[in-house]
């Protein structure tokens, strides 16, 4: 599986906003923290606002805030706003009858892999991802400080 930049930037933004409750953050804030393109993130934010996961707050001190349900929204919900997560076969000989049985079998196998990938991503809520991320950060900090986690 290869996540495209849109999905990845959306996950950065949604997890950052969901982890900060009612706090509003600008595109510049989020892009600056994760070292990603502000221009590209702005496009991603428009899509997230359109989906209802994120709300744009206008005016002085405006920005974005999370508007979804952190314990119901899954990683798949976010990713599927930007891509289908379906494997593709880079077929040079489209329509060649000799290829068909093998291509059909490969499509069946990649379909099985895709289904598993989606099933996993669809059971990890933002809340669970935030909790795991926090634990990972704390464990890394403990290692860096030389103390047991």
């Amino acid at each position: 599986m290869k996540l495209n930049k849109g999905s990845l930037f959306a996950l950065f933004a949604v997890l950052e906003l969901a982890g900060n409750g009612d706090r509003q953050l600008s595109t510049t804030d989020i892009a600056g923290k994760y070292g990603i393109s502000t221009h590209h993130l702005a496009k991603v934010m428009r899509n997230l606002v359109h989906s209802g996961l994120v709300q744009a707050v206008r005016g002085v001190g405006g920005g974005y805030r999370f508007a979804g349900n952190v314990s119901r929204t899954t990683l798949l919900d976010v990713i599927q706003l930007f891509e289908k997560l379906e494997s593709e076969l880079d077929m040079p000989n489209q329509g060649n009858p000799a290829c068909e049985p093998i291509v059909a079998e490969l499509r069946s196998i990649t379909g099985e892999i895709d289904d598993l990938t989606k099933a996993i991503l669809d059971t990890i809520t933002l809340e669970t991802a935030l909790k795991s991320t926090r634990l990972r950060t704390e464990a890394a900090a403990s290692v860096a400080a030389g103390t047991p986690s």
């Binding site: 899954t74 289904d115 099933a119 059971t123 809520t125 809340e127 669970t128 909790k131």
Partner: peptide, 15 residues
């Protein structure tokens, strides 16, 4: 069952 999102999400939340 992969369609049982409630239970799967629960187990995921438990690590």
């Amino acid at each position: 069952d992969r369609n049982n999102k409630v239970t799967l999400s629960f187990f995921r939340s438990q690590g």
